[in-house]
Every structure is written in C-alpha cells, then in structure tokens.
C-alpha cells in the first residue's frame, strides 16, 4: 500500500465532491441553518438555559442529526456504485494500484470533503458567535464539531457498505435514503413502540438505543453540554447511575465500532468482488 497512490485518489475525490451539486447544496443548507440557529440562540441567550456557544451547540444537535447522516450516507452510497456504473472503477483497477489503495483513497477523500463541509458550517457559525460576543465556553461547541465529524464517518462507512453491494448509483442512493429514514425516524419511533408494547426494562431500552449511532451521538453530545443525561428520562438516569464516568468512553467505543465495522465489511466485499 503506498501513501502516494492513496493521496492521489483522495485528492481526486475531494475535488469531485467540491464540484458535486448535491454536496454543495447540503453544505449551504447546513451553513444557512447553523447560522439561523446561532442567531436564534444569541437572541435568547440572556433568558435561561445554555448561553452563547453552549446554547448554540445544543440547538445544533438536532440539525446535525438530520442533515449530516443524509449527506454522509448519500455520498458514501454513491462512492463505488457510481464509478462502477460509469465503468471508471474497472479502468482504475486496471492501473498499478491495489483495491485497498482505491478503497482507502476514496474513503479518505470523502472523509476530508465531509470535514471541509462541516468546518465551513461550524466555522462560519462559530465566527458569528465570537463576533457577537457569545457568552460561555466554546468547549461544548468544539466538542460538538468533533462528535459531528465522527458521526459523519459512521454514516460514510454505512454508505460505503451499501455502495459495495450495489452496481447502480440510483439503487445505492435509494437504499441510503431508506437507511437515513430508518436511523433518524424509524429507529426512534420503533424503539418507543417496542418499549411500550413489550414493556422493556430500562437497561434493555438503553442498549437498544445504543445500537443506533445517531442515538449514541445525541447522548454523547447532550452529556458534553449538560454533564448529565437526566433530561432523556428513565434510560438517561439509568445510564448515568449505572455507567457514570464510563459513559464517554462507551460512546466513543460504539462510535468507532460503527465507523470501522461497516467500512471493513465494505472493503471485504469490494476486495472479493469479481463482477467489475
């Protein structure tokens, strides 16, 4: 595996992403909404609750939960499938490169493009907050940026997994959108329904929630800002009592598992694929 080849592929992915209309649209939407939320947070900063950076970070959690998974899933889902559909993947693999280099280069390039997009969105909102003398420590805000990037990587890995199993970009995007719906809405509603119907014990409810990387992100982000999960109800109170200081490590471990496992599965599938 050579770093030069991986970097050449990553740079190409980064450049393609910056020319991709959908990618730019997602980025602009994220920047616009982040600015709007920053403005609204500032407007209410003196009233109650979080102030300045902390308050904005809290407002941004829900925005991140909606937009970032959609963005990362769709670009991940297109990654390999689009190139296969165009025939460019076979030509690429006919060069003196290995499949692991192609996979790593594409993953790195798209991860960097997500980082660039998030950097723009959070950066512009952060500058506005700083210029407007937003009160409070920026630590919660910076922590949210880091967690958001990790969340985007989990969804990018899931997107790659979808892409490795599909030959057509349209199908891959469709599956990506379905998964986005499942993670964002069906996961929450399904969990609530299951908990009520089966009268699940609180520890099972917590662990079922932790199966969804978006829930992991939400709990971790709330914990960073609020220092407790009590506002999440019985499952949050149980988590704090049972795991306490270990929660941050647990959240990080689960997030890393959600990044590595789908990416690894996607690579294995890509490596053994013979129909290119």
């Amino acid at each position: 595996m050579t770093a030069k080849v991986i970097w050449a592929l990553a740079q190409k992915e980064l450049r393609d992403a910056l020319h991709n209309r959908w990618f730019l649209l997602y980025t602009l939407a994220f920047i616009g909404l982040a600015l709007a939320l920053s403005y609204m947070s500032l407007a209410g900063a003196g009233i109650a609750g979080f102030a300045g950076f902390g308050r904005t970070a809290a407002s941004l959690i829900n925005l991140v939960l909606l937009i970032i998974p959609l963005m990362a899933l769709t670009i991940g889902a297109q990654s390999l499938a689009h190139e296969q559909e165009q025939g460019t993947l076979a030509y690429l693999l006919a060069q003196p490169v290995t499949r692991v280099e192609v996979f790593a280069g594409k993953y790195l390039g798209l991860a960097l493009s997500l980082l660039a997009s998030l950097g723009l969105g959070f950066g512009i909102a952060g500058v506005v907050l700083a210029l407007a003398n937003g009160a409070g420590s920026p630590a919660a805000y910076v922590s949210l940026v880091g967690r958001t990037f990790l969340l985007s990587l989990t969804m990018l890995s899931v997107g790659f997994l979808v892409s490795a199993f599909t030959k057509r970009a349209g199908v891959a995007i469709g599956i990506g959108l379905f998964l986005w719906l499942a993670f964002v809405f069906l996961g929450d509603l399904g969990l609530m329904g299951t908990a009520i119907t089966l009268r699940l014990p609180v520890e099972q409810l917590l662990w079922l929630s932790l199966l969804n990387p978006l829930q992991v992100f939400k709990m971790a982000a709330i914990l960073d800002i609020n220092a407790t999960l009590d506002l999440l109800g019985p499952a949050g109170i149980y988590a704090m009592q049972e795991y306490g200081a270990q929660l941050r490590g647990l959240f990080l471990m689960l997030t890393v598992a959600w990044i590595v496992a789908p990416a690894l599965a996607a690579y294995v599938r890509f490596h053994i694929r013979g129909d290119l």
């Binding site: 025939g87 460019t88 076979a90 003196p96």
Partner: peptide
C-alpha cells in the same frame, strides 16, 4: 503480484470510461 504485473502493462479498454469533467 498484481501491482508489479500491471506496472508492466499499458491498457486500452474497449469501452472508454473517463472522468468527463
């Protein structure tokens, strides 16, 4: 030794698949 073998080959495909942009 796939990489070493392909380093010795220049390949022209039947269906040209390029990045058009």
């Amino acid at each position: 030794q796939g990489r070493a073998a392909r380093q010795r080959i220049g390949y022209v495909p039947q269906e040209l698949a390029f990045y058009k942009e």
